[in-house]
Computed example of a mutant assay.
Amino acid sequence: MPRIRSILFDLLLAVWTGLFAPVLVILWLCGSPERGVRLASRLWARGILVGLKWSVGLTYTERGQHNIPDEPCLIIANHQSTWETLAFLVLFPDVAIVAKQELLTIPVFSWFLRKSPMILIDRESGSKAIRKMVEESEAALAQGRSVLIFPEGTRKPASEPIEFKRGVELLYVKLGRPVLPVALNSGHFWGPGRTYKRAGAISVSYLDPIPPGLTAREFMRRAEHLLEAERRSSWPQAA
Rank of each mutant, 00 (worst) to 15 (best):
M1E: 10
P2W: 03
R3P: 00
I7G: 00
F9L: 12
F9C: 01
A14M: 11
V15T: 06
W16T: 01
W16D: 00
T17E: 00
F20S: 01
P22E: 01
V23K: 05
V25I: 14
V25F: 10
L27Y: 04
L27I: 09
W28H: 09
W28M: 07
G31K: 07
W44L: 11
W44E: 03
A45F: 04
R46T: 14
L49V: 12
G51I: 06
G51Y: 08
W54N: 04
V56Y: 04
G57L: 11
G57F: 07
L58V: 04
T59P: 00
T59I: 06
Y60L: 14
H66K: 14
N67Y: 05
I68W: 05
P69N: 11
D70M: 06
L74W: 09
T82Q: 15
W83F: 15
L86W: 14
L86M: 14
L89S: 07
L89N: 12
L91V: 08
L91T: 04
F92G: 01
P93Y: 11
P93F: 08
A96Q: 05
A99L: 15
K100T: 09
Q101Y: 02
E102K: 13
T105H: 11
I106F: 09
P107H: 05
F109G: 04
F109V: 15
W111E: 03
W111N: 05
F112H: 02
L113H: 03
R114V: 13
R114G: 01
K115P: 00
M118L: 13
M118C: 13
I119E: 01
I121S: 07
D122C: 01
R123C: 05
R123D: 07
E124F: 08
S125E: 12
S125K: 15
S125N: 06
G126H: 13
S127M: 09
A129E: 03
I130G: 00
K132I: 09
K132D: 02
V134W: 08
E136D: 08
E136A: 10
S137C: 10
A140P: 04
A140Q: 06
A142N: 06
A142R: 15
A142W: 05
R145D: 01
S146A: 11
L148W: 10
I149H: 05
G153H: 03
G153T: 07
T154P: 02
R155S: 00
P157V: 13
P161E: 09
E163S: 14
F164V: 14
K165H: 07
L171Y: 12
V173A: 14
K174H: 11
L175G: 03
R177K: 14
V179I: 11
V179E: 03
A183Q: 10
N185D: 15
N185V: 08
S186V: 05
G187A: 13
H188I: 02
F189S: 08
F189P: 04
W190E: 01
R194D: 01
Y196M: 06
K197R: 10
A201F: 03
I202L: 03
S203V: 08
S203P: 00
D208L: 10
I210N: 10
I210W: 03
P211C: 07
G213R: 12
L214E: 02
T215Y: 02
A216P: 00
M220S: 13
R221L: 08
H225M: 01
L226M: 14
L226Y: 09
E230V: 05
E230N: 03
R231N: 13
R231I: 10
R232Q: 14
S233E: 08
S234L: 15
A238L: 15
A239Y: 06
